[in-house]
Amino acid sequence: MFRALAQYWNSTYSCFTFGRVDLMPTIEEYTTLLHCPKVQVDRIYSRLANIPAFSKKLMNITGMSEQCVTTQIKQKGDCKCIPWRNLRDLILAHPDVKKRVDVFALSIYGLVIFPKALGYIDEAVSDLFDRLGKGTTPVPAILAENFRSLNACRRAGEGRFIGCPLLLLSWFHNHFWKVKKVSYRIFSENYSPLKELVATPRRDDVTEENWMTILQNLQEGDVEWRAPWMVPDEILYRCEDFDWVPLLGI
């Protein structure tokens, strides 16, 4: 499905184009999907010029000694990484429960959300994760990496999507299929589109060619412009002294 979907990515405008329909994931949608507090929206992560060494960040996150961390760091291509198997052993044996949770969360970021080197967690992920505890939002970085990866796949005509496929799949599923909306879920703090998607049986028997046919035949009426779990809380209705300003089409 992702190989087919990437062929409809418009690198010029950073959106998916299906016939007359243009749509892309937004910061607001990914913030809702990831249950990130809105108070963090203005604190966007950006990589600093002078950042602590990889070993120092790992020591802070894992609680391991410098000697132990240094021996586990590997070089994979142009980046430094730590093998997932080493972190897995630490999760199972670490005496500090909070550190176990932190290491597990770091592993999720490295293996699922930013899976650059398969089976490894790289230095860039540790820098982002180290800043999350300070109230920094990861959403723009996650979205930017999705766009960058889609651009690369589209330019090369092939390649591996480096990003969180579950997030993109949840976004796609709720915009392009007419789903049954249950109103209480929209306003429930415990409702998660990602959990619902994981619980939904997958169709692994649909080929890339069949997905291409499905995407080629998408019509404007097949598109749900607002995801059912997005509750609009800000509406533009005035521009200075002019009420009810007509908005331009997409």
Rank of each mutant, 00 (worst) to 15 (best):
F2L: 10
F2N: 01
N10D: 15
T12N: 08
C15T: 10
F16P: 00
R20L: 07
D22C: 15
E29Q: 08
L33C: 03
L34W: 05
R47K: 14
N50P: 03
I51W: 00
A53R: 04
M64R: 03
C68A: 04
V69G: 00
K80N: 12
C81L: 13
P83G: 11
W84A: 05
N86C: 13
D89L: 13
L90W: 11
L92A: 14
H94W: 10
K99F: 14
R100P: 07
S107Q: 11
S107Y: 11
S107I: 08
F114C: 06
P115L: 07
Y120P: 11
Y120E: 15
I121M: 06
R131Q: 05
R131K: 05
K134P: 03
T136N: 01
P138F: 00
P140L: 00
I142K: 01
N146Q: 14
F147C: 15
R148V: 11
S149F: 09
L150D: 13
N151P: 12
I162L: 05
P165Q: 04
F172T: 10
Y184L: 06
F187A: 11
N190T: 15
E196F: 01
P201V: 02
D205R: 07
E208W: 12
N210M: 14
I214M: 07
N217G: 07
Q219Y: 04
V223A: 12
W225S: 11
C239R: 14
P246W: 09
L248W: 04
L248A: 13
